[in-house]
Computed example of a mutant assay.
Amino acid sequence: MSDTRVLVLLGSLRADSLNRRIAETLRDQAPAGTVVEIAEGLGDLPFYNEEIDHDDEVPAGAQRLREQVAGADRVLAVTPEYNGTMPAVLNNAIDWLSRPYGANALRGKPFAALGATPTRFGGKWSHDDARRSATVAGAQVVADIVISESTVDRGDILEDAEFVGRLLGALDALVEHSGETASAA
């Protein structure tokens, strides 16, 4: 039996962001049989523009991302929240992945969104928006994976074994997901 490959789309561009550290924790502590890869270079993608998205002229970074998602078994957005929604870098990545319409790399892929942020609701709106956008793109959103963690006055939450356990449980739930939860496009 082959490993289940999970590709992480990071919503933060900072090298030492908490959400990158969450993704790295999932990568480093993934159970046997699960390989977690972090998609790099999302910040280098041009803003989605149909005029530069042609079969023979897709920007190299967008083509690489589409191939990474196509080769993955599952997709996980790990993201903070910016101004009450998902960061532009994540939205742009999903825009690139939503094309070509009807035959895109996200179509049919189990997808989840989670993360942490120093806001009252811990990124809930960002995660909801990422799930909604992925649903419109045709992903199978795993609705019961919900970790929107507020870090207000909590210190380094990755030192909290219970929180890390919840993250690993969410990864397991994504890997084990087999049926359609939501899909459109």
Rank of each mutant, 00 (worst) to 15 (best):
N49S: 12
E51K: 13
R154V: 06
S17I: 03
R5K: 14
A93Q: 06
R107K: 15
L18P: 04
G155E: 02
Y101S: 13
L90R: 04
Q68Y: 09
D55Q: 13
D44P: 08
E81H: 02
I157Q: 09
A139K: 15
E40W: 06
S178E: 15
G138L: 02
Y101G: 08
G179I: 14
H127T: 01
I22Q: 03
V69S: 03
N19K: 07
E67Q: 13
D28Y: 15
S2L: 14
N91F: 07
E50I: 12
G33Q: 08
G169C: 15
S98M: 02
V6W: 04
I22A: 00
M86K: 07
D172G: 09
L90E: 02
P46W: 08
R120S: 14
D3L: 13
E180F: 09
A170D: 10
L13V: 06
R20P: 08
N83S: 10
F163C: 01
R99N: 08
D56N: 11
L65K: 10
T119E: 07
D16F: 11
V141Q: 05
N49D: 15
T25E: 15
D129N: 12
E162A: 12
Q29K: 15
T117W: 00
N92P: 13
P118Y: 14
M1V: 12
A30Q: 05
G155N: 10
A173D: 06
R66P: 06
A88K: 02
L18R: 09
A23I: 11
N19Y: 00
E81N: 03
E51T: 15
R27Y: 10
D144F: 09
R27P: 13
V136P: 08
L42F: 12
V75D: 02
D153F: 09
A130N: 03
N19D: 02
E50D: 14
G123E: 01
A15H: 12
G122Y: 00
D128R: 08
G102M: 11
L9G: 03
L10D: 11
L26R: 03
